[in-house]
Design a protein around this nucleic acid. Structure first.
Length: 489
RNA sequence: GCCGCGUUCGUCUAGGGGUCUAGGACGCCGCCCUCUCACGGCGGUAACACGGGUUCAAAUCCCGUACGCGGUACCA
């Protein structure tokens, strides 16, 4: 049984890259009939943000990724917050200590910084706390048993470090990259237990993945360099490592990390929350994210979540970093929108429309969606159609210049008169009336239709003129035509 | 610096020794449709990082170089 996990740190709003990691895990779980676990990795008390867990939950739910086991869902492998599992880490550490795979160290942050600086200055390849340097430091390997006990009894700050044996090669199979190898001489004696008693990511991750029966670890490529530490830990604890799959990183459109800073500058949202607030459809975000680093090997581009579950495979995940493209996301969003019924678009557009125009009828919203759905990129764009939800208060300057001629006021006024006489007021009748008017006045059709569009909508772009007129409604149309004829000369 | 990973159109990518005069999608440009703007349809632009091998044959395999990215924390 496949068991995968998404294991974010509650340090802020969920990052879009985090959602992709969650998505790939979810897809593998669903495809194999496995279990999707959510585990909150809250071991860093200094960066902990209380609201973050809720944002993670909300974001996953928004994207449609349902969690099988997690802090709010429960499950047999709980608890699902690392801060609630400290006894297990302690137990593992004791075992590592007893077996000589780990040791206690007393060095202060300053002493370690000094070590690094010195190694750097002396031009060594490795700069950290490792087999090459631990003999010079203050730890259970250099102190005698009595001294260690004495310092422990005195309550001195200390950490527990993994004892990495030099001269070995750690190999593991990565599902997307193939075999990856690291020399242990380049692997530092990683801290496993911090001086505050909390585990580091490395320890907690290995202990929990084992305890929760995780079979496949799908995570970002930034973890690849620390995977040898994890493999060493599994070995030391006598456990079988899971399968690893390291995802290519999502990069900024200008290259480099898609950080908060670079994204802000480029106007790209970084948090899932921001995508939601910007009016993106979750289906579009999911579809777009799925294609950032994966492809189905066919030419199909539009996928529902269920179709992705069907088509997904770890083998087809790519190896190189993928630059984020807002253009492509927008295109996906348009595709999703065109598949939605007007009623559904109306539901999604409502908050934005009401924020701008006040309360609106459901029927007005649906009518607007029906009229404009081919022309909007986001459901919330409906709110821009002022002429459907309020008054026409101004006219587009450039359009006015181009389309409003000397005879426009007269033609628009005359058209208003003819509509007043038109009891049907349908798409057909309003069009016939306009064609008749153009013929009677011996002017081109465009001479009438463009000024009428301007007068009734205030803008030059929009849906078919006659559908638009019918949607706006007869009385309002006539009133707007007359007012424009009077105001614009 | 050191370690690791990567490198096909501007971007996402297909392709994994001959079928590649390198395919698709986004973007961009043009045409068609048309009352505008879109949608849609059709067409166009544009890429195998570089250098050595291996081979009858290399975008595809090997080595090197360059470049990019990640890691190098008592952060994850």
């Amino acid at each position: 049984m496949t068991r995968v996990r998404f294991a974010p740190s509650p340090t802020g709003l969920l990052h879009i890259g985090g959602l992709r990691t969650a998505l790939y895990n979810y897809l593998l779980a669903r495809q194999t009939g496995g279990v999707f676990v959510l585990r909150i990795e809250d071991t860093d008390r200094t960066r902990f943000v209380p609201e973050a867990e809720k944002d993670i939950l909300d974001s996953l739910a928004w994207a449609g990724l349902t969690v099988d086991e997690g802090p709010t869902q429960g499950g047999d492998a709980g608890p699902y917050r690392q801060s609630e599992r400290t006894a297990r880490y302690r137990e593992a550490v004791d075992r590592l200590l007893d077996d000589g795979h780990a040791y206690i160290a007393f060095d202060t942050a300053e002493e370690i910084a000094e070590l690094r600086e010195r190694r750097q200055r002396e031009g060594h390849d490795s700069t950290g706390y490792s087999a090459a340097t631990r003999g010079e430091m203050t730890n259970a390997l250099t102190l005698d048993v009595g001294q260690v006990q004495q310092r422990l009894d005195a309550g001195d700050d200390h950490v527990v470090r993994l004892k990495v044996e030099p001269g070995q090669t750690v190999r593991f199979e990565d599902a997307v990259r193939g075999e990856v190898a690291f020399e242990t001489d380049t692997v530092d004696d990683q801290v496993l237990l911090k001086s505050d008693g909390m585990p580091t990511y490395h320890l907690a991750n290995v202990v929990d993945d084992h305890a929760m029966g995780i079979t496949d670890v799908i995570r970002g490529e930034e973890w690849l360099p620390s995977t040898p530490k994890h493999v060493l830990l599994y070995d030391a604890l006598g456990w079988k490592p899971p399968r690893f799959a390291h995802l290519p990183l999502i990069m900024s459109p200008t290259g480099g990390k898609l950080s908060k800073r670079s994204a802000d500058r480029l106007g790209i949202p970084v948090n899932v929350r921001q995508y939601r607030e910007a009016g993106y459809e979750p289906e579009a975000v999911v579809n777009f994210l799925a294609f950032l680093g994966w492809n189905p090997g066919t030419e199909q581009e539009g996928f529902t979540l269920d179709e992705l579950v069907e088509a997904f495979s770890v083998e087809r995940i790519g190896t190189s970093g993928a630059q984020f493209s807002l253009d492509k996301l927008n295109w996906f969003n348009g595709q999703v929108l065109r598949e939605l019924e007007p009623e559904e678009i109306a539901v999604r557009a409502r908050p934005e429309v009401e924020a701008k125009h006040g309360a609106v009828d459901a029927s007005a919203l649906v009518a607007a969606a029906t009229l404009l759905r081919e022309r909007i990129e986001k459901a919330s764009d409906l709110a821009d159609a002022d002429y459907l939800f309020g008054e026409v208060t101004s006219y587009d300057e450039t359009a006015l210049k181009k389309r409003w001629k000397d005879d426009s006021a007269r033609l628009v006024a005359t058209y208003a008169d003819r509509l007043e006489a038109d009891s049907e007021f349908t798409e057909a009748s309003t069009e016939v009336a306009m064609r008749q008017l153009a013929e009677d006045e011996e002017v081109g059709f465009g001479r009438v239709i463009h000024p009428v569009r301007l007068a009734t909508t205030g803008v030059s772009a929009g849906a078919g003129m006659f559908e638009t007129l019918v949607t706006i409604g007869r009385d309002t149309v006539i009133e707007r035509l007359r007012r424009a004829a009077a105001e614009l000369t």
